[in-house]
């Protein structure tokens, strides 16, 4: 599990600190499927960065079980390099996560269904293909917690259904945290929700109730 205790975090612009998270408390357990809603600029990306371990909170504590592996933020467009091929990306990620490079490459090839594009530079991909590669990469490495951005849901209907099936299957043994400002994706993937508003996170057990509150904001 992982826990945020009174976390304050943000970024610096021209030397001035701008804290977007102002005292966030949360804990995430195995099997949780939490949707985090918030308007543009509410601090969703900052929260994801804290959870992924990339950003140290300015104040407060981020505690994580050492055995609890959190994914990189999926669907942020990052994490893939454009000038090398999809296969190169797969092997690179396998290496840094200590997995067999060719086994992972094979898995990604099968899941992403990129055909011969797998051996072309990622720069030549369409955005849908990029999304498929990014998602296949994250599925190939086993995580205990998946941080998912709504952008991952880009892709054609066939991919969307595969994405949902894969997420459904993972949900039994992992935590899924979906960050979004649209509510339809959350309804599909999550069982509970939290609203990020004015730097704080409010949890709601009931998804529909949370969505109703969010829409009134």
């Amino acid at each position: 599990m992982m826990e945020l205790r009174d976390v304050w975090a943000g970024y610096k612009v021209h030397g001035r600190e701008h804290l977007v998270l102002r005292g966030v408390n949360a804990s995430f357990w195995r099997g949780d499927a939490v949707g985090i809603m918030g308007r543009n600029g509410a601090g969703k990306s900052t929260l994801v960065k804290v959870l992924s371990g990339r950003l140290q909170p300015s104040r407060g504590k981020f505690l994580r079980d050492p055995e609890f592996r959190v994914s990189w933020p999926l669907g942020f467009g990052g994490a893939i390099h454009g000038s090398i091929t999809g296969a190169d990306n797969a092997r690179f990620i396998a290496r840094i996560y200590d997995r067999d490079p060719y086994e992972i490459e094979h898995q990604v090839e099968e899941f992403a269904e990129l055909g011969h594009f797998m051996h072309q530079p990622v720069n030549t991909y369409s955005s849908g293909m990029r999304g498929r590669l990014a998602f296949a990469l994250s599925m190939a490495i086993d995580f205990d917690c998946y941080l998912v951005d709504e952008a991952i849901a880009a892709g054609d209907a066939r991919f969307q259904s595969r994405f949902r099936m894969a997420m459904e299957e993972r949900r039994k043994r992992s935590t899924v945290i979906v960050v979004s400002h649209s509510t339809s994706i959350l309804k599909d993937l999550c069982t509970s929700a939290a609203i990020l508003h004015e730097g704080r996170l409010a949890f709601h057990e009931d998804l529909d109730e949370a969505i109703a509150i969010y829409e009134r904001l």
């Binding site: 390099h81 000038s83 090398i84 091929t85 190169d88 092997r91 690179f92 290496r95 840094i96 200590d98």
Partner: peptide, 17 residues
Amino acid sequence: MRVIGALVLRELHTRFG
């Protein structure tokens, strides 16, 4: 060490292809 090794290979690909 593992990460640096992977980065060297990747750097080879991105710089020289």
